[in-house]
Amino acid sequence: MKNNRILPLTLVVAAVLAGCSSLPANNSLLDEARNDYSIAQANPQVTSLAAGELKQASNSLDKANSAWSKDESKAKVDHLAYVAKQEVAIARETADQKAAELAVTNATAERDAVRLEARTREAEYAQRNAQISQRQSEASQRSAQISQRQSEASQRSAQISQRQSEASQRSAEASQRQAESQTQAANIAQLNAQDARQQAEAAQDRSLQLEAQLKAMEAKKTERGMVVTLGDVLFDTDEAQLKSGGVHNVQKLADFFRQYPQRNVMIEGFTDSTGSNSHNQNLSDRRADSVRTALLGMGMGSERITWRGYGESYPVASNDTAAGRQQNRRVEMIVSDDNGKIAPR
């Protein structure tokens, strides 16, 4: 009788267990989740940058493991294993994202350092140009001194011949007059030679100056005249404000126009093709106007300046590469001929 009572009870319990759970077999999804987790845990980037996400994945994996060891239904174990597996992937992606963001932060610092280096180099470049001009002027000074010494020598020899002619004066009056007239002719010739030499030196100085100035501004000869280009690095990003390097270049140009009052300037602004047309038109207008304002501030007459923005028109390089876009973001200043004329675009 006792056995009879226990047997059906045991059968009921067995049936209940069979109804709610499956046999303790391997679960492939759970194996995948465990494997993914151990790979992520061995990755120092994930453990350091996504510790919270990895902990959450670990908790979910614990739940899946515990359901599996309690022989709960395959559907439940599969579900918990799937969630754990996706959470491991979330931890991995989070670590990737943070690593890339760190790289951007570091790169921003590096870019600032590179910009600083660019400005330093520009200053050194200007200093070198100044030294070259100084050396050139020292050289022409030296050659002037040499010419002067030569003329002193010829003067002395003229004096010697004068003395000789004075000695012969006593012997013949006629030859004395002749000697005097020769001395006068020599003096006149000497004066003429001095004049010519001074003029030549002045002309040489002027052409050296013009050449050195245009070189310093990196002017290029085009069909429309000499063109000085202000690159993108001389402006703040997406702003019309000139940086100190840009102001420096414009100052050189203003000095140039002070010396050549018959020459005028045309200022043209350009951008790359990134952004809307109206934004680009506006930025190129403002950059051109900013250069004009700088020239006016340096004392150049407004009647000598024309300016306009061309937006993304007239690119000088391809807009498909970062290097090309940087070349297209620019302000060009065209120097007129001696009559103040500039050919239209």
Partner: peptide, 21 residues
């Protein structure tokens, strides 16, 4: 994370252009 990686690549390009210049 894809967008962050893209930003890092663009930043690297910018620096290279600046150095070339």
């Amino acid at each position: 994370s894809a967008k962050a990686r893209k930003a890092a690549v663009v930043m690297g390009d910018d620096i290279r252009v600046l150095r070339d210049e």
